[in-house]
Design a protein around this nucleic acid. Sequence first.
DNA 1: GTATCGATGATCT
DNA 2: GATCATCGATACC
Length: 201
Amino acid sequence: MILTASFYAEDTVEVAQRLIGCFLVHDTDAGPASGRIVETEAYLVGDEAAHSFGGRTRRNRAVFGPVGHAYVFAVYGNRYCFNVVTGNRGGEAVLIRALEPVDGIALMQERRGTSNPLLLCSGPARLAQALGIGLACSTMRLTDGRLTILLPDSMPGYLPIPDDSIARTTRIGVTKSRDLPLRFFVRDNRYVSRQNRKMGQ
DNA sequence: GTATCGATGATCT
DNA sequence: GATCATCGATACC
């Protein structure tokens, strides 16, 4: 079942946690590719690390748009990061940081140039490349169409992830608002981008 | 036009 | 853990 706008319109931190275990799916002309979300980060109003903090620009306009739409941005040159617009305050989003590859693995391998499963979707720019997500996907609606997110019970053979298997720490790579505990990931899952990060590091 | 800066990743040790 | 390649977006002149 595809996640609806009302799912994304809840509190952004809550949505970041509830997205763990859901499936990100991108169906392109080259074929479908999908993975299970195992790591997310929340970016909030009043949060200096959030792109919306400095106000609206050409780059971040998607994050001020409707919830349930994609916000994709370029960073460090030719790399892209995929977010979902969330919350009910405007300018909030959840960054998808890692997937466990599920479907279309041959296509992901081709796009990424490696067959190592741990290097396909473990990191925000890696998963964007593996799923063929670029700037053209920004502002796209995720509640229908070819780029969507599905509930954890949508795929046979996968069980929902219990709350006590979800760890919460500070975020990766940010230089501002470093101490906010806004990162969620599946404990002991080998597809998470950084395994043993402790609070405050 | 030009300088600066990353919500990174690959490649070392 | 540390270093660095790399380039789009932005801010400022």
